[in-house]
Simulated assay, not measured.
Amino acid sequence: MTPTETVLSALTALFVNFDGEAARDLLAPGYIQHNPNVPTGAEAVIGFLPALKDSGFEATTHRVISEGDLIVTHNTYNNSQLLGADSLVSFDVFRVEDGKVVEHWDNLQAPLAETASGRSMTDGTATVTDLDKTAENKALVKGFVTDVLHGKAPEKITDYISTETYMQHNPYVADGLEGLGTFLAGLAESGTTLAYTETHMVVAQGNFVFTASEGVFGDAPTAFFDLFRVEDGKIVEHWDTVEEIPAEMAHENGKF
Rank of each mutant, 00 (worst) to 15 (best):
N79A: 08
D123P: 05
T241Y: 09
E237T: 01
S213Y: 12
Y196P: 01
A195M: 04
I46S: 06
A212G: 13
D69A: 13
F225R: 04
A59F: 09
N207W: 05
I161G: 03
T4N: 11
Q81R: 08
A22F: 01
D123Q: 05
T2K: 15
Q205R: 03
V7T: 12
F224V: 00
T115N: 04
D69W: 08
V72Q: 06
K100N: 10
V102D: 13
G186V: 07
F210Q: 06
V102S: 05
H150Q: 14
S55K: 09
Q81M: 09
D130P: 01
G30P: 02
I46L: 07
V96F: 08
I161S: 01
P29G: 02
L27P: 09
R119L: 11
D25C: 00
E178T: 11
A223I: 07
D130E: 15
K133H: 12
S87Y: 03
F18T: 02
P39G: 14
E252N: 15
A110R: 06
T192E: 11
L82A: 05
N79W: 07
E67G: 10
Q109I: 04
G41A: 03
G30N: 13
V202P: 04
E21S: 06
F208V: 04
T134I: 11
L177T: 01
T125V: 03
Y166R: 08
E252I: 11
V203M: 05
D92N: 10
G41L: 10
P171G: 11
A185P: 00
F228P: 03
I32G: 07
T146M: 13
R63Q: 10
A153M: 13
A116H: 11
A135L: 09
S117T: 07
R95F: 14
V89D: 03
D25L: 04
E248D: 15
T6D: 05
V64M: 12
V236R: 12
V236S: 04
F15T: 01
D175A: 08
A195C: 00
G181T: 02
L227G: 07
F15Y: 15
N207P: 02
N253P: 10
A23R: 02
S190E: 15
G191C: 09
E243N: 12
D106N: 05
H150E: 14
F217H: 12
L70Q: 12
A195Y: 02
G215N: 09
H200D: 08
F144E: 02
T125W: 00
Q205N: 13
D106V: 06
Q205G: 06
S162H: 13
Y160C: 00
V7Y: 14
H169E: 10
I46V: 09
L180G: 10
T2Q: 14
K255G: 02
L194S: 07
D98K: 07
V202W: 12
N78I: 00
L177G: 00
F57G: 01
D19C: 03
V145E: 12
D54T: 05
M121H: 05
E237G: 07
L8A: 07
G124I: 00
